[in-house]
Amino acid sequence: MSVLAYLIPVALFLGGISLIAFLWALRSGQYEDLDGAAQRILLDGEETGDKPAIR
């Protein structure tokens, strides 16, 4: 049963990391435009949101 001493903390740690990752993504506004995110993958080239180099 001593294996539990590793496994439980490991499981919780990994789960916790994904939880923190989600909360971070939420806070940085990545869930604010889901439709847009799905479409933006089709845009090639540099990110257009910030000032692009004039082509």
């Binding site: 889901l34 847009g36 949101g49």
Partner: peptide
């Protein structure tokens, strides 16, 4: 213009 961002949703 510094920044223009479309929110499609």
């Amino acid at each position: 213009v510094e920044r223009a961002r479309v929110n499609l949703s």
